[in-house]
């Protein structure tokens, strides 16, 4: 037991020493989870409380990130927004992971018609510029946060389908699969217990890289007025609200939420690269 545990740990240490940024990525992720869980409790001000006399104050000790056009504390709003942004991204990615890996496994395992139909479906999604498709979906299904989640899940589906399909297809006739079949396991059981676990490692990489994408996508949608609506605190909307003050020099309204967004995406990308090094050392760049 000790030996089986030690090997991955050594590899983890080796990978981290080769790319110390991965540790930074995991650290940022821990911080984000903390803020998402306890953000509303530790924020110094009410993120929605307006005070007109206090509007557009530059950063100071009382308001480290300044105040916005309604006198709300930008620092508190950036902290509180973590939960919403992370929540949207996590739910969207979880949805596309579950549906995408199920469809991909079916396509890879059964081949034939299932493969063709599922393949066509994901090709059709990929034929759209993905952000534009998300815009269309939210516009027609209704301008709500749930629909932003569904739209983000839909545009990420093809990536999960592809990964799952490829991993399952190469192992479809592997020795252990045939052994399981001979011992009387049903197809679904083989898929779930023998093949699906193989899909998980590359999926983790995909999920991590995708979370960054999903956050960017959701923030982009709310930047153009879809999904999250004011006065909710959300990074994309805060940048959008700050946009009109940039040309008059009030930079702090957009800078801090924008930086938070950037750090979040950066953190997921670093984690994804680190996970890829762990899972598939041959693809290190």
């Amino acid at each position: 037991m000790a030996a089986t545990l030690a090997a991955p740990l050594t590899r983890l240490r080796y990978t981290l020493s080769g790319n110390p940024l991965t540790a930074v990525g995991f650290g940022l992720f821990a911080l984000m989870i903390f803020l998402a869980l306890f953000g509303p409790a530790i924020a110094p001000y009410d993120p929605l409380a307006t005070r007109a006399v206090n509007a557009l104050q530059p950063p100071s000790w009382a308001h480290p990130f300044g105040t916005d056009h309604l006198g709300r504390d930008v620092f508190s709003r950036v902290i509180v927004a973590t939960r919403l942004d992370l929540g949207i991204a996590l739910s969207a990615v979880a949805l596309s992971f579950v549906i995408g890996s199920a469809l991909g496994c079916l396509a890879g395992f059964f081949g034939g018609w299932a493969d063709r139909i599922i393949g066509r479906m994901s090709d059709t999604i990929m034929a759209f510029p993905l952000f534009v498709l998300a815009m269309g979906v939210v516009a027609t299904m209704g301008n709500t946060v749930e629909n932003v989640i569904y739209a983000t899940a839909v545009i990420n589906l093809p990536f999960y389908i592809r990964v799952a399909r490829a991993e399952v297809a190469v192992r479809r006739n592997a020795g252990y699969v045939q052994a399981a079949r001979l011992s009387g396991s049903s197809s679904l059981r083989i898929l779930a217990t023998q093949l699906f676990p193989n899909v998980l490692p590359p999926m983790m990489v995909q999920i991590s890289l995708n979370l960054g994408w999903a956050i960017l996508n959701a923030a982009g949608l709310s930047f153009i007025g879809l999904g999250v609506r004011p006065p909710s605190a959300e990074w994309g909307i805060m940048v959008a609200e700050g946009a009109s003050y940039i040309i008059s020099g009030e930079w702090w309204l957009a800078l801090f939420p924008g930086t938070a967004l950037m750090l979040a995406v950066f953190c997921f990308n670093l984690m994804g690269d680190g996970l890829r090094d762990l899972v598939d050392p041959t693809r290190r760049t």
């Binding site: 957009a254 924008g258 950066f266």
Partner: peptide
């Protein structure tokens, strides 16, 4: 490469405006 994929386009645009216009 790492920074480029993390940059939200609308945010970079705004800050280019801030620096080069304002």
């Amino acid at each position: 490469v790492t920074a480029g994929v993390s940059l939200p386009t609308f945010f970079t645009g705004l800050f280019l405006i801030y620096i080069f216009y304002y």
